[in-house]
Design a protein around this nucleic acid. Sequence first.
DNA 1: ATTTCACGTAATAAATAAAGTTACATGAAA
DNA 2: TTTCATGTAACTTTATTTATTACGTGAAAT
Lengths: 147, 147
Amino acid sequence: MKIDSRLSSVLHALLHMAERGSPLTSDELACCMRTNPVVVRRTMGFLRKAGIVSSSKGHAGGWSITADLTQVTLRQLHEVLGEPAVFAIGNRHERPECLVEQSVNAALDGAFQEAEALLLDRFSQITLAQLAEDFACRFDQTRPKKD
Amino acid sequence: MKIDSRLSSVLHALLHMAERGSPLTSDELACCMRTNPVVVRRTMGFLRKAGIVSSSKGHAGGWSITADLTQVTLRQLHEVLGEPAVFAIGNRHERPECLVEQSVNAALDGAFQEAEALLLDRFSQITLAQLAEDFACRFDQTRPKKD
DNA sequence: ATTTCACGTAATAAATAAAGTTACATGAAA
DNA sequence: TTTCATGTAACTTTATTTATTACGTGAAAT
């Protein structure tokens, strides 16, 4: 199953942008995410439309964060990316005529909806600022002698 | 994203088999599941290896349930099918060197693990017998005049 | 016996969707 | 006016699931 890693990708990009003050180009982001600059532009375009980042052309251009890191949650980013399907498993037919299949779907849907609600709730409780702080801790731990 | 609907499929098949006393052929199952008999045999083969169903060749052959419907849970079936990946979204790289990406992964993994645990817990609480009963209710509701 | 039926399985093809790539237009700064 | 960087369309690649074809095995009916 090929999974959608765009949320992971944009988070990675956003944190790098938060670390660096000046704009990062699509090529730079593509390099640290091991992907292609066009893919970066395509994906970051969703965030631009949502006002989370801005892009500028020409010399010293690139991508910058415009939103407040404490206000952007993972859930918002998930929505901005078009709320892609969360699950890789699911019903064979969405609206079956067969009563047997309707029972099966009802049972599975109930479980999936609960799990998705939990996931989105967790996503809504994590902000970019928290991730940036977590990164700062990890970074400090790699330089234990700095006292 | 192409989702794995095998769990849905085998549940559908198992309930049809529970309704009917005699064995159902792969062609019959394929017909009601709108798929191919070879796909049915391939998927049901996992359940046969797990001792949930048996198959017989020749005239009047086909698939039968051997397990107790009250003992088979959706979680067991999920395991029998090889515990396929639950989520369609995930990390870009599983073990990144980049500290930024490690922070991102840690946050996402935590949420995913909680949601998966909830889903599997729900799955473990639903038995084939419960689904069969749910179907019986739906069936009765389509024949309200029967008294 | 032998014909029919149905599963078992390998090998291959088709379908699907994300990701990657190419190409070129737009616009800003040096 | 040259260089740099984004914006986007179109196309290709890649990975994976599902579907299909083909043939083998074995059980039951005639």
